[in-house]
């Protein structure tokens, strides 16, 4: 039984890590209908910048984090200026293509600026197994994963308040619903986009920190975006809670399937389980668990 709990817990924690990446997608998709292919690379770029600032310039941790946030905001501004502004009113597929381009540009920039070797990210986040859990419940759980889960919870709470209660949050949701009408009431799309991409950049930074601490900052980090995809399909592209719960379901599903079903089919279920689950969802519930239903009236 403890073993089962251990599997589920580690699945949950891994799921939170997926959720952190998926969250960035949801934000941008909600506010602009753009599927941002570059979200994974943004996480990588943020982590690279953070490590770079600490290693090359000797910034203390807090200053490096503030510096990276500034860089992500500047990046958002640049993306709006150079890319989005010129693609107003274009088909979603064109914007999607543009984000693919952005992914390559960012990856190249990260390479040129900070080098391509694997870096260790040490922010003093507790590592290793939690002794307390091991002693009192005999359950093995990584401290880093607990830390990631708590961070994710804080982040989501913050985002929820931001979206539901503030003037800007309301404007973001308005833009998500109807660009034209938002323009007509005087909401500047340019400002909104910069804000959304900045927030997504900061979320990417958090994801980058967690993944970077776990497995080092390396270029394969950008591929975690692919794991976020089934999370989004499960949770719904437009739902923040959906991204979190979708991530957890996939995390747990993966681990449980690997441990209990894996042996019968020769293992390695973990790699494809999420995609199979996503496929099933696409067949039976395309808007995901929590996605906004398209309201259609006749």
């Amino acid at each position: 039984m403890t073993f089962f709990i251990e599997v589920v817990l580690s699945g949950l924690m891994a799921g939170v890590m997926y959720s952190l990446v998926a969250l960035g997608f949801v934000l941008i998709f909600k506010a602009s209908g753009i599927f941002n292919f570059a979200q994974g690379v943004m996480a990588l770029f943020a982590a690279l910048t953070l490590v770079g600032l600490m290693e090359k310039f000797g910034f203390p941790i807090w200053l490096a984090i503030i510096g990276t946030i500034a860089v992500m905001i500047a990046l958002a501004w640049l993306i709006e200026r150079v890319m989005l502004r010129h693609l107003v009113n274009q088909e979603p597929i064109i914007l999607f293509m543009a984000t693919i381009g952005l992914a390559y540009v960012l990856e190249g920039m990260g390479d040129i600026l900070w080098g391509s070797d694997v870096k260790v990210l040490d922010l003093g986040i507790p590592q290793g197994a939690s002794d307390w859990m091991l002693d009192s419940f005999d359950i093995y759980i990584e401290k880093l994963e607990v830390f990631a889960a708590v961070t994710a919870a804080i982040l989501v709470a913050f985002l929820a308040v931001f979206f539901q209660k503030t003037r800007i949050g309301r404007a973001l949701r308005a833009v998500a619903d109807d660009h034209q009408a938002a323009l007509s009431v005087g909401i500047s799309l340019h400002t909104i986009w910069v804000i959304v991409w900045s927030v997504a950049g900061i979320v990417a930074l958090v994801a980058g920190i967690m993944w970077g601490s776990k497995s080092g900052v390396q270029f394969s980090l950008s591929l975690i975006a692919l794991k976020a995809l089934p999370v989004l399909i499960l949770g719904g592209f437009t739902s923040v809670p959906g991204a979190i719960i979708g991530g957890m379901i996939i995390g747990v599903g993966e681990k449980v399937a690997e441990v209990y079903v894996g042996p019968f089919v020769g293992g390695a279920i973990e790699n494809w389980f999420a995609y199979m689950l996503a496929l099933v969802f696409l067949l039976f519930r395309p808007q995901g668990l929590f996605g906004e239903k398209i309201i259609e009236r006749v």
């Binding site: 308005a174 998500a176 619903d177 109807d178 034209q180 009408a181 007509s184």
Partner: peptide, 12 residues
């Protein structure tokens, strides 16, 4: 301007 076809923010 109040646009043709209302254009309310549906999910708000």
């Amino acid at each position: 301007q109040v646009m043709e076809g209302r254009h309310c923010f549906e999910h708000l």
